[in-house]
Design a protein around this nucleic acid. Structure first.
Lengths: 189, 189
DNA sequence: ACCTGAACACCGTTCAAGT
DNA sequence: ACCTGAACACCGTTCAAGT
């Protein structure tokens, strides 16, 4: 029991440090201190620092899935896909450091992570398929169309987070605008 | 003179280490050793480690601009934009660690970096504008359309690098396919 | 102006030992 | 089974000193 809550406290402490100062600020010593244990107690719950970060990412993936569900009541199939992507954008802009952690260059390593990501994105493919059936999105391989939507959304977030968006003159489009633009173009077809 | 070549050697050594083992493998001690100087000689050329990494990123941005120009002879305005994006994809997949460094969460910090990125992407806006004039891309704010294209390309690369693309079943679309899909949808309009 | 060697503080990880 | 304190190797950064 105590071990479970300690493990959870470690993940929470790591998430707090991540939010406050980025992944470099997540030090096992500070994580342990905030969780009320010694600086090497984490090794009894995680293989190493990367495993702890993977646990943080796994928890956040569940959070992201929830954020994509927010306010999607009483929407058409096509609107639901767009709303989910806007929820994705909102989550990422709200927790930029969690976003960069979850989609860092090591997602493949952890099996649990890949699994949870697969679940989250299979929901998107489902929604895209429904929108295609409803005639709100163009025909074609749903997985491929979902990948396109996903790529645009992801890229819009990255551009927004790195400041490559607001810097580009008076157009001052934000990530939401880019996602909306994509859906507008897709629906015209 | 010697200082210039030392500075250059430091950047080259850092780039090699980046390619080999990611940004974490870039240690000032190993950089100095590979450049034939002591482990703290870099501080005579760069304020700190981040400044060295920023110099690496700045050099790579020039490389990226070149990659986007590759093989763009005898193409229509619309094809030129797509070819530039495919060049961007090819560069990123060829040097994944440089890609994640250049578009890391700190691009805003360095003035030179922001400047060079601005130059690179203003070329894209120019090409997009030309394609619009030629009727190969839909009308609208060129900066905003360029941002959409840019976001999709960037997102497709990230998805490919993190393995979120090939894992999604039989569709097995790669980054090139997604970029091509976007241009296909845009041209239909 | 550029470089070096020693030193400091910090961190990930391991280990022997405790309950 | 879970935790601790000490220890080791490594790294970023600083400093006094050398040419």
């Amino acid at each position: 029991m105590s071990s479970v809550s300690t493990r959870d406290a470690l993940i929470t402490a790591a998430t707090d440090l991540l939010d406050a100062g980025g992944v470099d600020a997540v030090t096992l010593r500070e994580v342990g201190h905030r969780a009320g244990v010694s600086h090497n107690a984490p090794y009894k719950h995680f293989a190493d620092k990367q495993a702890l970060l993977a646990a943080v990412a796994a928890r956040e993936l569940a959070d992201l899935t929830e954020a994509m569900r927010f306010g999607t009541e009483q929407l058409s199939a096509g609107e639901l896909v767009e709303a989910a992507m806007l929820g994705y954008v909102a989550w990422a802009l709200r927790h930029p450091n969690r976003f960069t952690l979850v989609f860092g260059p090591w997602t493949t390593d952890c099996a649990e992570l890949g699994e949870r990501a697969g679940v989250a994105w299979s929901l998107i493919v489902q929604a895209v398929t429904a929108a295609q059936v409803a005639g709100e999105l163009p025909a074609g391989d749903p997985e491929r169309l979902a990948a396109l939507i996903r790529a645009t959304t992801h890229g819009a977030i990255v551009l927004a987070l790195t400041g490559h968006l607001s810097a580009s003159g008076k157009g001052h489009a934000n990530a939401d605008d880019l996602v909306h633009d994509l859906f507008t173009r897709l629906r015209v077809t």
